[in-house]
Nucleic acid binder design. Structure first.
Lengths: 190, 190
DNA sequence: TCCTTGATGTGACTGAGTAACATCAAGGTA
DNA sequence: TACCTTGATGTTACTCAGTCACATCAAGGA
């Protein structure tokens, strides 16, 4: 089956990020992305359900990872500790080499409302995964929801800092910092 | 200017909810909604930026209301109290008469992924409004984020219960209950 | 040699969303 | 009365996302 170039999926992702960054998300058509990879429009839609999704490939793995990490926490761990461990574990999948590509990807996502909307949906999906996994650990629903929101928000803030100058380039360090900051902030709610 | 029937915008909203509920979101075209109101497709898009948005009209008012309510809280109020007051104030805009229409609307939104995505985006927008307003009150960023998430989540849960049998039909009562539940749950985070 | 499998291509189609330009009644102004 | 502006609408034509039915063609096994 070596009739076509391999890694079609990855090459489509790279081409999409490049073309979106260069010419803008709206101005780039799916047909252009496909042509850039030497493939037809149909093939694009066989790999991704829609045009936006090409920028969010791999999210489902992260969802599964978070869920499994929560499930694997020791029974003695508090909801916060459980979530924090899962978030840090996820952060470990983003070594410093991934910083620049991540930043480029984020710049594209931030450039268009449709993409920000999809991004918000994915963020909610991460929180939902944490919440569900906590509930399966018999954490009360309200606590599970709050802990999930805290974890997802801390993760997002860690990514923001990761992409900003003046912060550490190790995402796990930033994740721990933001988690601790939010943990302390809990006491200030009143 | 009485050449056309008045309240075109409201009639489009009603027609959309009705047709989506009857025939499904995908199966209903914008042209059908417009025709049902005796208007052209173009007119629909002059009132709503896209097909989904017809189900989320009025959200921006809620965003503004939350922001103003937070800003109007007494200086002595804690972040939780501030957010709770704003959420209850918003809940007051949904008297028992709005329960059935709200439930029908939610059923439509829940029926299609595109609409759930837009809904998640709108939810994030509410949380963002709370967060921003808290920050303008000099609440530390981390605390503001957590309080905003708590408030938005409590509001959502209150709506869920409102639409469920066996709960009060007064949304402000449910909002207070869920806010208190989440407030207590904060202590269980560990 | 035959057959299955899997990834791809082609062409035609629907429907969302946009743009340019026309219409036409209301209400004021000369 | 004649004229003009304004605002909401209609018409037509277009691009592009996304779908569908059907064809292709190499790899690899029976």
């Amino acid at each position: 089956m070596a009739r076509w170039e391999p890694n079609t999926r990855l090459r489509l992702i790279d081409a999409a990020v490049e073309l979106f960054a260069e010419n803008g998300y709206e101005a780039t058509t799916v047909a252009q992305i496909a042509a850039h990879v030497g493939v037809s429009k149909m093939t694009f839609f066989r790999h991704f359900p829609d045009k936006r999704e090409v920028l969010f490939a791999g999210q489902e793995e992260q969802v599964k990872m978070l869920h499994d990490a929560v499930a694997a926490a020791p029974a003695s761990a508090t909801p916060f500790e459980t979530v924090a461990a899962a978030v840090v574990e996820l952060a470990a999948y983003f070594p410093p080499e991934r910083r620049e590509p991540s930043a480029r990807l984020h710049a594209v996502v931030a450039s268009h409302e449709d993409l920000r909307e999809r991004s918000a949906f994915k963020h909610a999906r991460l929180a939902q995964a944490l919440e569900q996994a906590l509930i399966e650990r018999a954490v009360p629903a309200a606590t599970a929801g709050l802990a999930a929101d805290l974890g997802a928000r801390a993760l997002r803030e860690a990514f923001v800092r990761w992409r900003s100058p003046g912060y550490a380039t190790d995402l796990t360090v930033l994740a721990r910092e933001t988690l601790d900051e939010f943990h302390e902030a809990v006491d200030l709610l009143g």
